[in-house]
Every structure is written in structure tokens, then in C-alpha cells.
Design a protein around this nucleic acid. Structure first.
Lengths: 323, 323
DNA sequence: TTGTAGGCGTTATCAC
DNA sequence: GTGATAACGCCTACAA
């Protein structure tokens, strides 16, 4: 593989001149430029990026870290990658499984100058472990974080969830069951708070029904359909934390001969493809915009700009799983 | 940021010794090792990977290239990334949209030593454009390729599609419509060949129904439901090229009050989550295993091994959209 | 067991 | 306009 010196030699100039030609800065006479470009063509030369990166101290590469990739994470991933590529950044994926060490490895890459910035979608380690890495480059999170040092594109799920609860109430539900997701983040806490406030507002008893937590997949939703069938005093509405759970609940109910929304109403969350397909009433959650904002936050830090963020709002998508 | 010389100075040794400690090769006395490790701790030192890569001429990073990320591509992405990470490789994502130049950019990264190998999921450029890059590192494709130089984890869709057709026939369908996907690759050609052979075998007229090509999304499937409703002599079976299309067809049919499989049968393809959720009879397509094989092919080339590949087979998953 | 020094391939600061 | 040359930070013969 030819290097810059080979080009210089073959063109009868110094490597400094070749570098100027490549990077199009500094003065080069038209004549020598032509000559150098010709040689570059002939020798099929291309600069070694590792050398460039070493010299420049940056790689134009961002990392994106998550334990797995669900539907909504994929949407985020897509939006972020597209934004990044638009500005000339590549994106490296770190799938951490449930391995905390893998997450730390990704952060190490930032420290080791392999990554210019990092997007953390779902966190595994404590913030105390991760926070020290902020000094090596911009880090942005999706989930909310108790620290002021780390910017986040987090949206308070309290508002979105409340939208769903209000809709259930408005359509006649008085005996609502919540299907919460993972309890490790703050979203479930926000949702529980929303539910309590909701109950207080309408003088409902919040302890009428058991708590369901940690539901994530459509399989989880399917189990709930069976649970519902066994109850003597049946709930008339389900508020969920994801469209996948809602989808599982609805499809399994159908298999059991239970009609939605006649028997009960369901509100999903996220507004992903499956919700549209199954006509699930859900809460639209502008993940794509969050992803763009996430990139903007990193980009601004990296380039000392102040590009504006896109404003974010939840809103209800009324479909056919509520009355 | 401390570098190796700072460590050397602080520990009162040479940078060569520090390097030996870091890489655990060469002889270092227990005493100096301890001393050096202590200093590394104290100065919070970690080697700059760009320098390491420059020196070593490899980055332990693989690229994965695709225009977009659909459900099945995401499955592939996941499998590949997990396999790669298991062997210490990172994976960089190149989302090319429909921009041929972006695809070439990714291949350039291979040439520029930023990538040790490349997985190409869906191709945009002609092979003639891409083939020259094989000399810069291992390249593996998902789609079949007319060239012998490029290994592929391609599976001949003829077999899988035939499985679906045979099943439709066995369950009584005699008037089958094919919902083919993109015509740019070879898969659709294989499927069309399968259909012709199928018709010949059972003495069916292959031109009884119009051709549907280029269907990919659930929206496309939905449109077919409307088409079906308008026909006077209605087909009794649909063979599709993706679960998404099948899902759209089925859900829209339901909205139109058409019962599946009473009115017609549907066979999906891929066996992704949505097929399970909607009880779609489909063809299982071991994408995850293909992804693992893809990594193995690259890994073998990179390390001159001969790790075995996982054998791949299609099989029919009978659910409730066929009789 | 340790140190010296050259080289990996660029970029950028000086001179000229 | 162009050319030396010193970094960037690390690894690794080869010496000692």
C-alpha cells in the first residue's frame, strides 16, 4: 500500500505538498497539484486514517450504547445514525447484553480516543461509574439522569402516560390496570406518580387492582390476557408502557375470544409500526426527533455551536382499542 | 492526557518497559511491573488506540452496510454484532439510504484501514464497482453474488418459497397469487422460478393471476387486501416474500370484514415477531444463524482459521392463516 | 531484564 | 509556493 512519501517521491515533491493537495489547504501551484493528483490516481493512493486520527486526535466516530435493540431503540438508532452521517460522523454500535463490563468498554473507547462522543440509550452501570468519563468527550443519554453534567433528551413520561389515563377516563374506564415496564429507570416511577395523581383527581381508589411491573415484550402482554380472563371483578382498561405489551395483550385476548374494546380498553405507548397495524390507541412519542436532538447535543459540544433543539411533545393517537 | 512517556518518566523506566507491562509480553521483573502499574493507576493512563492501530495496521472493527434497517435486517445486525463482540470486534454501522456514494464510502473505510472487514447486507452499487475492494480485506454479503471471489451467507429462496407453495397446495389452494418483493436482487427471481416449477408440477396455469412485485411494507400488503375484495374470481391463497406484507394483508382484510383463512390463505416469510403475534403461517428463515456464519466467514479470513459454518435450512411454521 | 531508537503515516509549523 | 522536520503515541527489533 502506497503511502504519502511514495506519492511525494513519484511526483518529485515533498510529502508536505502532497498533504496540501489532499487536504486542499495551503498554497499549491496548479501545475504541481495536477501532477500530484495524477500520481495519486496511478498509485491508487488513499491516506491511512489511523495516522490522520492519531495526528488530529479525533475520529469522527460516535458510539451508541444499549443492551439490546428493540423496536423503539431501532428507531432511535436510525435517527441518530442518519443525523450523524449527515455531518460526516460514523456510528459504532455497542450492544452490551446485560454485561456491565461491555458498557464500560464502550466508555473506554471514548477515553482511548476511538470515539468522539457517546450516546447511551439504556444504562446498566451506576452513574457514579460512568460520570468520570464525561471529561473524555460529550456523552448524551436517553433516560433521565440525576446528574446535571450529562445532557439528556429524556422526556418526562408522566405527561405522556397521563394523556393515556385521561383518555381512558374520558371513554368511561373506571377500573384501570397499569402494565408498567422496567423498574430500573425513572420512567416507571413517573408513570406511577401520574397514576396516583390521576386517581386523586378523579377520586378513584388506586389500590383496586394489583401492580404489574417489568412487562416489556408481547409475551408479557399475552399473559395479562389470561390473567384478565380469570378475574371475577374485571378491569375495564389497561394503560401500558409499550406498544409491544399492548399488542400481546390484544392479540391474545382475541385468541381467547375476548373483544377489544368491548371487554376492555387498551392504550399503548410509543406509536411504533405494530400499533398502527393493529389499530392500537397509543401515545406518540417522537423518538426520531429525540434522536436528532441527541446528535445535536453531541455535535454542539464537539464543535462549540449552539444549534437549536427540536421541541418535543407527546400526543394521543386515537385508534380502535379504546371506545 | 498522559501518554506512555509520562508513565515511563514517572516510573523511572523506559517507554519500552511500560509497553511490555501493558501488553504483557517480553520480560519485566515483578518489581518494575508493580511500579509501572501503580503509576498507570495514579495517572489514570490508558493507551491511545489510534496510535496502536496505526502501529498494528488493524482496528478490530468491522463494518456493516445496508440502505435501511427493517425488522429482518435488525435481526441480522444483532446476530452479527453479538458474534463480533464475542471475539473482540466492534461493529460500525453504515446506513446508506439509497445513496450509492455512501456505500462506496463504507468500502473506502476498508481501504483506509479503518475497518478490518465488511458485511454487506443489501447492495446498491454494481459488483464491478465493489469487487476491487476485496483486496483490502474480507467482504461478505447476504445476497447472492455472481462472483466467486465474494463469500456469501445467501440462502436460495427457491427452496423456502417452494415450501410455502406446497403447503398452500396441500391445504387446498389452487388459485394462488404471489406477492413478490424487490426485483433488484436475485431472491425474487428464485421465487418466480419456484412458482413456475410448482405450476408445472401440479398442472396449474401460472398466468391465472396478475404479478405483484416490489411489495415490502405492511402498507403494501394492506393495498392487496383491497385489490382482493374487488376481484370477481378471487384467489384462494397468497404466497408472500415477507411477514410484513403478509401482516398488512391480514390485518386490513380483517378490517374489511374478510376472514382469514376462510376467505383465503396466507403464507408469510421470515418468521419474525409479527408473524408469531398474528399467528401467521410462515417460512422460518434462520437469519440469526446466517449472521453468525457471516461473522465466521470474515473471522476465518482475518485469522486464517477454518471454523465451521452452521448448516442452514428453511422450514414451515404452520399457524392459523392457512387451513 | 531493560533501554535505545527507528518507524507506523500524517499534519502543521517553520523557514526559505 | 515549497520543503524540512518535529510532533502525534505507540510498538518492537536490537543492543546492552
Amino acid at each position: 500500500m502506497a503511502n504519502i512519501k511514495d506519492i511525494a517521491k513519484a511526483a518529485g515533491v515533498s510529502s508536505a505538498t502532497v498533504s496540501r493537495v489532499i487536504n486542499q489547504n495551503g498554497y499549491v501551484s496548479e501545475e504541481t497539484r495536477k501532477k500530484v493528483e495524477l500520481v495519486i490516481q496511478q498509485l491508487d493512493y488513499v491516506p491511512n486514517l489511523n495516522a490522520v486520527y492519531l495526528k488530529k486526535g479525533a475520529t469522527k466516530t460516535l458510539g451508541i450504547v444499549a443492551p439490546y435493540f428493540s423496536d423503539s431503540l431501532t428507531v432511535f438508532l436510525r435517527g441518530f445514525t442518519l443525523s450523524a452521517q449527515k455531518e460526516g460522523y460514523n456510528v459504532t454500535l455497542f450492544m452490551t447484553g446485560d454485561d456491565k463490563q461491555k458498557e464500560l468498554d464502550a466508555f473506554e473507547m471514548l477515553r482511548r480516543k476511538q470515539l468522539d462522543g457517546l450516546l447511551l440509550l439504556i444504562r446498566l452501570n451506576d452513574w457514579k461509574q460512568l460520570e468520570p468519563f464525561t471529561k473524555y468527550g460529550p456523552i448524551v443519554t436517553w433516560q433521565r439522569v440525576e446528574s446535571d453534567h450529562i445532557p439528556s433528551v429524556f422526556m418526562n413520561h408522566y405527561d405522556g402516560y397521563m394523556l393515556g389515563l385521561e383518555h381512558l377516563y374520558a371513554t368511561g374506564c373506571r377500573n384501570i390496570v397499569n402494565l408498567y415496564g422496567s423498574t430500573s429507570g425513572l420512567n416507571t416511577k413517573s408513570r406511577m406518580k401520574a397514576y396516583l395523581d390521576f386517581c386523586e383527581k378523579y377520586h378513584l381508589n388506586p389500590n383496586l387492582q394489583p401492580q404489574f411491573k417489568g412487562l416489556n415484550s408481547s409475551e408479557d402482554g399475552e399473559k395479562v390476557a389470561h390473567w384478565w380472563k380469570e378475574q371475577s371483578t374485571k378491569p375495564d382498561g389497561f394503560a401500558t408502557s409499550s406498544d409491544a405489551v399492548a399488542a400481546g395483550l390484544i392479540t391474545e385476548a382475541k385468541r381467547l375470544g375476548v373483544r377489544v374494546p368491548d371487554a376492555f380498553s387498551v392504550v399503548g405507548f410509543d406509536n411504533i409500526e405494530i400499533a398502527r397495524l393493529l389499530d392500537i390507541t397509543t401515545i406518540d412519542y417522537p423518538i426520531e426527533k429525540q434522536a436528532q436532538n441527541a446528535f445535536t447535543l453531541i455535535f454542539n459540544q464537539l464543535t462549540h455551536r449552539e444549534n437549536p433543539l427540536i421541541p418535543l411533545d407527546f400526543h394521543l393517537i386515537k385508534r380502535h382499542t379504546t371506545k
